[in-house]
Design a binder for these strands. Structure first.
Lengths: 333, 333
DNA sequence: TTGTATGCGTTATCAC
DNA sequence: GTGATAACGCATACAA
């Protein structure tokens, strides 16, 4: 590999000059610039990003920490982050946290040891305090899908409460009044908020909340099945079911079918997220869209602004949108 | 950030000694080692990976180039590669090629400019020559899901021909003799191989190949729909349909349903890949499993061996497996 | 505008 | 076993 010094020698200039044309400085004679560029060509010179990093103490890399890689949700997030950042010639180092505190902390240490200029994180286990500490004392961060007090401008997230509200409101508008709910784990913020929205919609419609129509899952497909069976066993009839994400909705749907129910006539089911498979299930799943791609883009933009001196427009709170498909239907009184 | 020099000063030794304990060299006095380690503790010292890279000309990073990020297939691949590599304290830099030659080349240049020690690639557009050139003159690579002549040991892939064979054989065993086929794009190697397997199964069973029962798609969901409609319009009856991937199978299924067909009784459909949504569609999709997770792991292992001096077991050719679900059924004569 | 000298934080090659 | 000293490839303050 050719170095800047060899280029300088061949072009008959000093290495400072080479460095200048390399960094697009205007203060360099056109003649010399041409010579240097030709020398670069001939030597097939490529700057060493490592050496540059050592000199500038910047790596042009941002660490990304997500819960999983093999899910449509995080796939979209990654895709958005990667392409936004790469447009700005930054790159992405990926790690996985598995929703586990130790793993998440490990990943953060790993990324910091790699001298990332910033971190984009989607974490569940890690505390707000920990996040604030990282941002204050270690490296700037952006948090996806979570509100951290004191870090508002660095957090991009969905209005989960409103999403929960929309889902239930939709069922109410269809005439349902006995509405069951399979929520996410109560220790998860987004799950709590979606549930709160659900309850607000019920309250506004004058429908009393019933513990019997409630089941707490952990966002897994299996929980949809377990949840539906449990709810059914309580002998309190319902004609519609809200699920806190699409996986559980899908689990509930297969379970319902296995039980001989005729969907959506016997039971309206609504999900949350609009995962890729939402329109693969049968009947196609009505759900609430989580605009994760845009959120990833905004998170990346925040970093671009905060760390790399750009000034892009960023939006931090996203509005969920109802996607009507065929898994919900009018309640026939 | 504390440097190695400050640690040396505090411990009252030279920086060579610090460097030695840092790298676990045995040739250092226990007393000094203790002093140094304490000094590191007190200063909360973290070695700079950048400086180390400059000195060793290794970055402990491997570049990964995949076609997309937001697909279950690549999600699994990434997950496998990341976790395998991180166990060995290497990290992963991700880029996306979008099945487009220019983008793929760009991504490779980008990764190389980042001084990756090696590349793991899943590319479609790039030529074999180009791949060989990268490996020979630039940086060691491993190729996923593709056979490159001369690079055999660096290629880990599925036996696509056998996969295609298995799918069709399964339908034949169910008694079907009129079997339509929606293949992938003929410019894609894996598509050609799957098709070859399909034809071999037909031939072995004495079923003549018919151009009328063949449609070439591009692996998109929409192609499943287009394909089925086209095939149906040709007035040559068939009772089973082979699709070269799950997306097209899913598209064909919804199309069939929209056309009023009763699945799987009116038409048996089989897919390929066993994507996550394969068991979400209704009826649950019979398909051929593509063990992408293991393939990713093996690809990472190959790099670990070739570049980082490890000696892990690697397997390069993977056997597809038939996953029987409910979308295929006996042909009633 | 151009060149010189120095630093970035390690590893590696020598002597001692 | 230990400690100077020179790379590694680039950026940058400063001098010319």
């Amino acid at each position: 590999m050719a170095t800047i010094y060899q280029v300088a020698e061949r072009a008959g200039v000093s290495l400072s000059t080479v460095s200048r044309v390399l960094n697009g400085r205007k203060t360099v004679n056109e003649n010399l610039r041409a010579k240097v560029e030709q020398a670069m060509q001939e030597l097939n010179y490529r700057p060493s990003s490592v050496a540059r990093s050592l000199a500038t103490s910047r790596t042009d890399s941002v660490g990304v920490l997500v819960s999983e890689l093999n899910s449509p949700f995080f796939g979209d997030l990654m895709q958005a982050v990667e392409s936004t950042l790469r447009e700005a010639d930054k790159h992405v180092i990926i790690t996985v946290g598995h929703n586990n505190l130790e793993t998440e902390k490990d990943a953060v240490e790993f990324l910091i040891s790699r001298n990332c200029d910033a971190l984009i994180m989607h974490v569940e286990a890690m505390s707000d305090d920990y996040l604030r500490d990282i941002n204050a004392n270690r490296v700037p961060i952006s948090v996806v899908n979570r509100q951290v007090e004191g870090l508002e401008s660095a957090c991009v997230c969905l209005d989960n409460e409103r999403g929960g509200y929309l889902a239930t409101q939709h069922l109410i508008e269809l005439g349902h009044t006995n509405i069951a709910c399979i929520s996410g784990p109560s220790k998860a913020r987004d799950a709590r908020l979606r549930l709160a929205g659900h309850r607000r919609a019920l309250a506004e419609a004058g429908i009393p909340w019933s513990e019997q129509l409630y089941y707490e899952g952990r966002y897994q497909e299996e929980d949809g099945k377990q949840g539906l069976q449990t709810l059914l066993s309580r002998n309190k009839p319902f004609t519609a079911l809200v699920c806190a994400n699409d996986w559980m909705a899908s689990g509930a749907m297969s379970c319902a079918r296995d039980l001989g129910m005729n969907l959506p006539y016997d039971l309206s089911i609504i999900g949350f997220d609009d995962a890729v498979f939402a329109h693969h299930v049968y009947p196609r799943l009505t759900t609430v869209k989580n605009p994760i791609y845009q959120m990833g883009e905004m998170s990346a933009r925040h970093i671009l602004n905060a760390v790399y001196g750009q000034s892009l427009a960023v939006k931090t709170l996203f509005d969920p949108k109802l996607i009507m498909r065929e898994s919900t239907i009018f309640h026939k009184a």
